[in-house]
Simulated scan of single mutants.
Amino acid sequence: MNAITDFEVKAADGGPASLDTWRGKVLLIVNTASKCGFTPQYEGLEDLHRDLGPRGFEVLAFPCNQFGGQEPGDAAEIANFCSLTYDVTFPVFAKIDVNGPAADPLFERLKADAPGLLGSKAIKWNFTKFLIDREGQVVRRYAPTTKPEDIVKDIEALL
């Protein structure tokens, strides 16, 4: 099975970005939105990124507008919001779909490797999180209600 780090995605500017850049790191991949009740989780995600980053951890954010239209902005607006409101320093990629016929292949793989409750594949809302080990394999899926600080022990076990 190929590693998650074998995928190519779109950078915020729309150009290609290889996840190979993060090969060998523990990753938390999250679909995000700027106008969601869970948006304050950006703060916790940034704390994880800063605290655990030196040990080989990275947060990768993928904005998505599929849930209640809660990510209406373009790439510049999203970047500005993340930077000014939450001082985000982890990568925020281009806005994508995570469900449906136009779902990004990365998220198709994440959903297949770590189904939700009762085996459901669909992502139910913004801030669904996927933990990836150093070999690029999906370890676990977390619900939007799972706070970043509640994942620390799982991340540290992989570091």
Results as ranks from 00 to 15, higher is better:
A143L: 13
L118M: 15
F7H: 14
L48N: 07
R109P: 02
D20Y: 09
K124S: 11
I78G: 01
Q41F: 00
D6L: 10
M1S: 15
F127P: 00
Q66P: 10
I96N: 02
I155D: 00
L117P: 12
P101R: 15
G44E: 07
G44A: 11
R140P: 02
A33R: 04
T128A: 03
P105S: 06
V26G: 04
Y42Q: 02
H49M: 06
N31V: 05
G44R: 04
V98N: 03
A33Y: 05
T145H: 13
D150T: 05
V59C: 04
A61W: 03
M1N: 13
D47V: 10
L52K: 07
F67L: 06
M1G: 15
P72L: 10
T32Q: 07
F62G: 08
L84D: 12
A12G: 09
N99S: 12
L110Q: 09
T32V: 15
V98T: 03
P101L: 12
C64V: 04
E8D: 13
V139G: 02
E43P: 05
D20P: 08
A11F: 07
A112H: 11
K10Y: 06
E149H: 13
H49K: 11
P40G: 13
P63I: 05
P144I: 01
I151Q: 12
N2F: 14
R109V: 03
A112C: 08
T85S: 13
M1C: 12
A33D: 04
V139C: 09
K25A: 11
I78S: 00
G68I: 06
T146D: 12
F7W: 06
G53Q: 14
T5V: 08
A79W: 03
D150A: 15
L45K: 02
V30F: 00
G136Y: 05
K25D: 13
L131T: 03
F67R: 01
F130A: 04
F81E: 04
E156L: 11
G56K: 13
V92P: 03
E58Y: 07
E156Q: 14
I132E: 00
V98R: 02
F107G: 09
G136Q: 06
I96K: 04
G73E: 10
V92E: 02
P40W: 14
T21R: 13
G119P: 10
I29Y: 05
K124P: 00
K147A: 14
N80M: 11
D51Y: 10
S34R: 05
L131R: 07
L118P: 09
I123N: 01
A102T: 11
F81M: 04
A61G: 13
K124H: 09
D51I: 07
R23M: 06
L118F: 15
F38M: 08
F90E: 01
N31H: 06
L118C: 12
A61N: 05
Y86Q: 06
R140V: 03
G37Q: 03
L118N: 15
E71A: 01
A17E: 12
T32E: 02
F127A: 00
A102L: 09
D150I: 01
T39E: 08
P115G: 14
